[in-house]
Amino acid sequence: MTAYFVKRLIIAALTLVLASMVVFAVMEILPGDPARLMLGLNASADQVEQLRNQMGLNAPLVLRYLHWAGGLLSLDFGRSYTYSVPVIDLVRERIAVSLPLALIALALSTIIAIPVGVFSASRQGRAGDTLAMGAAQLGVAVPNFWFALMLIYLFAVWLHLVPAGGFPGWSAGIWTALKSLLLPAVALALPQAAILARVARSALIEVLNEDYIRTARAKGLPYRAVLWRHALRNAMIPVLTILGLQFAFLLAGTIIIENVFYLPGLGRLIFQAITQRDLIVVESIVMLLVAAVILINLIVDFSYAVVDPRLRGRQ
């Protein structure tokens, strides 16, 4: 058991090192000079060269990689070229938007998906099931940025219920801040909910066909109790796996939605940093996200291994 965990940890660490090299290499071949971008049209070549020296861009490649990677190990993420503040400060500000947004979207998605999944599973093959799963199919097919635009025009421009975008900051009051995260969260949650509902339904149906459920029913337990108390609990593993994946996706995959709602989140920070060639910001944040995904995968794998020792050999 311990050997398995240690092996997985070593592999995770190796993956991170490899990922850091990939990220660094990719940013190296990105065309465009951050120094020229900062100084603009009227700066001379000498001025640009001087700024490059100041920014440490002229040091040898390997040295720069080691400097950056070494910094990461001691949780020093470097300084942003454009903002000239520590990257970690930027991350801290942005994660205060992205993390709550991801959590709200995840919560919304779960609140919608689980009841729909249970409803569908309990009426398998009947009209209600068909209707619910049809709606889920539709939900999966809608591009979330298009859905977001429709939401903005309906709820912000016509009905004035919520702001059309922007984030006033948590200092503006929890309710005010939450209100501005509501539409983006809905736009993000709907497609996720559609996927989750389908997974929940099939997992439940699978469990409902297991022997112990039949036994429970044969013993005279009411269907409702069997469904909610026994079946749902056992169907949770695939549902939680998907939730883990979705969480990782929501943390990083919200670039387009953050742009549509001009939210100052992580996704937009990276997007902006790529266009401004703020290399260090891109490198460090991508690494953070990669690390988050690897960590989530690790936790999922470990919890499987604890629940079902047979899986250890196969994974």
Partner: peptide, 21 residues
């Protein structure tokens, strides 16, 4: 493991980087 490595990169973000290059 290489598979996992690719999976670990946020897809849209990586696509943006690929097209940026």
């Amino acid at each position: 493991r290489v598979n996992d490595l690719v999976f670990a990169f946020p897809a849209l973000l990586s696509a943006i980087m690929i097209t940026a290059i």
